[in-house]
């Protein structure tokens, strides 16, 4: 059984289904990447895994236990962390407060974790007293990832963490994400920059209209001529 298994998810926001029998799995310490065209339902799939969507069918298990019926908050307590695609910081709160809110469910001392986040993203330490809303796009994404790391999750879910940042910052962010994965945290990530993401991915999913179109290792997907032609631009 995979560490995270979200099997046969079917559902949507209202009457119409967005996801059709969509399946995603992530192994311990592995990076899994979801790619696909705009509006394919990638964000929707992430929300479904995190319990922010009512599934009509399907089952989500984490480390062997069924979490399908749990609320997002309870999933956080089970060791999942989520960085949404948009609105992923508290804009009028300082960087430090953002991280503090990330650790809201923890009753122990989270100073050490905060230091770890500052080591991972040194710029945040300099800007700790500044409001997150006043930071640049890349810095804001770092705050968002840092906030999710504050609960010391075992599975980190990132929805387009590099959206709207410059290529240099993007490389930097990818490096950090690999670094996080090396500490044993499993990662499930949606990415627009498919080629680059699949290069670092242990496993890749190509999602089209809410369905699994291709599923393979990152390398194999990069090599697949069909995938290359339709999704990677040749």
């Amino acid at each position: 059984m995979s560490y995270l298994s979200a099997a046969n998810m079917t559902g949507g926001y209202g009457k119409a289904d967005i996801l059709h029998d969509c399946t995603l799995t992530v192994e311990k310490g592995e990076i899994a990447v979801i790619v696909g065209p705009n509006g394919a339902g990638k964000s929707t799939a992430m929300k479904a895994v995190f319990g922010m969507l009512n599934l009509r069918e399907g089952r989500v298990t984490l480390d062997g236990s069924d979490i399908t019926a749990l609320s997002p908050q309870d999933r956080v307590k089970k060791g999942m962390g989520f960085v949404p695609q948009v609105n992923n910081v508290f804009p009028t709160m300082s960087v430090e407060e953002n991280l503090e809110m990330g650790a809201f469910i923890r009753n122990d001392d989270f100073k050490v974790t905060m230091e770890q986040v500052f080591t991972l993203f040194p710029i945040l330490k300099d800007k700790r007293r500044q409001n997150a809303g006043e930071l640049s796009g890349g810095q804001r994404q770092q705050v968002a990832v840092g906030r999710a790391l504050m609960t010391q999750p075992k599975l980190l879910m990132l929805d387009e963490p590099t959206a709207g940042v410059s290529p240099i910052v993007m490389d930097e962010l990818f490096d950090r994400i690999i670094e996080v994965a090396r500490t044993g945290i499993s990662i499930l990530m949606v990415e627009q920059n498919a080629r680059q993401a699949l290069e670092i991915a242990d496993k890749g999913y190509v999602l089209v209209q809410g369905e699994n179109k291709y599923t393979d290792t990152g390398k194999a997907l990069l090599a697949d001529p069909d995938v290359r032609r339709t999704f990677l631009g040749g």
């Binding site: 995190f50 956080v76 989520f82 910081v89 508290f90 809110m101 609960t151």
Partner: peptide
């Protein structure tokens, strides 16, 4: 500031 994120943070 951000109700959804607050909920996500528990």
């Amino acid at each position: 500031d951000n109700e959804d994120l607050a909920l996500l943070s528990g």
